[in-house]
Amino acid sequence: MTPSDVTSQQSLTQRLANPTRFMQLSGTLMPWLAGAAAALILYALYLAFFVAPEDYQQGQTVKIMFIHVPAAWLAMMGYALIAISSFGYLVFRHPLADVSAKAAAPIGAAFTFLALATGSLWGKPMWGTYWVWDARLTSMLILLFLYFGLIALRSAVEDEALAGKLCAVLGLVGVTILPIIKFSVDWWNTLHQPASVIRMDGPTIHPDLLWPLLVSAIGFSLLFFALHAKGMRNEILRRRLRSLTIAEVDRARGASAAAAAG
């Protein structure tokens, strides 16, 4: 059977999930993703600082919304990506799913931290405090700790396959935090405002503020995917390096054993 016969028998998912094919595809796509992300983020900054009007209640502090809201969305999307990847790894046992989960954790953690930090800086002038232990803020903080837990668990377990499985279980269990974050503003009394963009009855935010927010969200989402692709490429190379190093050590041991026997 030739390699092309093997390839033709694979499903589309299997072909895309092949690490070598992923390296080729991501190598081509990543510069375009990064370029589009940079262009959209710059455009969003222009809209935020030179086009978008002040909010009638919040004044110029509404400019923080253009970075705070995308960070919060991406913090949750990052964890959803980890949960989907974890499911793929536990059910289909594909190592690339584990690579995806591992690569998404630090990026998701960074966006969660940014959502908390920018929210805090927005909260002080608007609410009079940097922090309150209300449902939305606390559930976002738990999400940050979940990300830290995933990163710490993976580095604590030396066996890579076992670490992958343990992180996948934690990743799936932890996904329960996402609906809690999303609906926390509806279920409990909080200082945080209710959803104003993703709502069943449509956005309640004025289009002059909504448009820069959406451009910013798309730009930072593309950046997230570019960073995730880069993280996955690094992890694939790291695993290659590890297996080559082990092979070299085994070969050296074999050679020294043969020399001792001879």
Binding site: G59, Q60, T61, L121, P125
Partner: peptide, 8 residues
């Protein structure tokens, strides 16, 4: 950016 420029 008004009185809250430092926060922004």
């Amino acid at each position: 950016l008004g009185p809250h420029a430092a926060f922004i």
